[in-house]
């Protein structure tokens, strides 16, 4: 037996979430960060000070760089929040309470 042979994976049924109004595809179990990144989106926040783009960094909920607005609620960590069908994900500007 090959000890490093990757186990087969069976994808679940894809569904859609929206990012800034645009539909993107996600899979059951994916975090919002993983779904966004898999769709080619690597940034979903602008910083409070310099307005620079940020996205995922630590991937495990420690750094808070991946903050995003989900269903109207700002400051959600995209790497922790699971993608669910129909989620309304929006780029967060500054504190998320600016607009």
């Amino acid at each position: 037996m090959d000890p490093v042979k990757p186990a087969r994976t069976h994808p679940g049924t894809p569904f859609t979430v929206t990012f800034d109004g645009r539909e993107i595809q996600a899979l059951p179990g994916q975090s919002i960060a993983a779904a966004l990144w898999s769709s080619g989106v690597t940034a979903w926040r602008t910083t409070r000070g310099a307005g620079r783009l940020r996205g995922a960094f630590c991937g495990i909920g420690v750094c808070f760089d991946c903050l995003v607005t989900v269903d109207g609620r700002p400051n959600q960590r995209a790497c922790l929040v699971p993608a669910v069908p129909g989620a309304d994900v929006r780029t967060q500007s500054g504190t998320g309470h600016d607009d």
Binding site: L27, G29, Q30, S31, A33, A34, A35, W37, S38, T42, A43, R52, L53, R54, G55, A56, F57, C58, G59, I60, C63, C79
Partner: peptide, 21 residues
Amino acid sequence: TLPGVVTAGGAQALSKGGLSL
């Protein structure tokens, strides 16, 4: 701080968490 720069463990966590690249 540029998007696309992630921690090594973060890349691993994201790839286990369904990131496909």
